[in-house]
């Protein structure tokens, strides 16, 4: 079992102030999804409009965490628009995105560089 963690928010000067990268790892379940939500909402409140969640080290993500990602999209819509993309290569985690339909709402990238390039193009 890998322990859940959220790294410090990453802001890249080249990417602009609206782009924020949150690095999350481990098992994201009902015990920790409130922490994930709080961190994402804090980033949005601080001005992030194009959020990149780097889930490269996430091995498990439950339905409550999927709910947090869906709520993030709603929050961005309600507050003037934005985007949420995810970096993930874990086959089973991607399968969960597919079963829940989240893959039709967010874009999943294989690397942080790919997600950043897309965010830069969108901006």
């Amino acid at each position: 079992m890998r322990t859940f963690y959220i790294g410090d928010d990453v802001h890249l000067e080249d990417a602009g102030p609206e782009v924020a990268i949150l690095v999350v790892g481990g098992e994201v379940d009902y015990e920790v999804s409130p922490q994930l939500k709080a961190r994402i909402m804090r980033a949005i409140k601080a001005g992030a409009r194009r959020l990149i969640l780097d889930l490269s080290d996430v091995t498990f993500i439950d339905s409550t965490a999927i709910g947090v990602l869906a709520a993030t999209l709603e929050k961005l819509d309600e507050t003037g628009g934005g985007s949420l993309s995810v970096v993930c290569t874990h086959e089973k985690v991607i399968q969960i995105f597919e079963i829940t339909g989240l893959d039709s709402l967010i874009t999943v990238y294989p690397s942080r560089e790919d997600a950043l390039a897309a965010a830069a193009t969108a901006g």
Partner: peptide, 14 residues
């Protein structure tokens, strides 16, 4: 209804 409150429905589907 609602992205987050639909988690229970997602759980069943999963």
């Amino acid at each position: 209804d609602g992205a987050e409150t639909a988690a229970g429905g997602r759980g069943l589907a999963l």
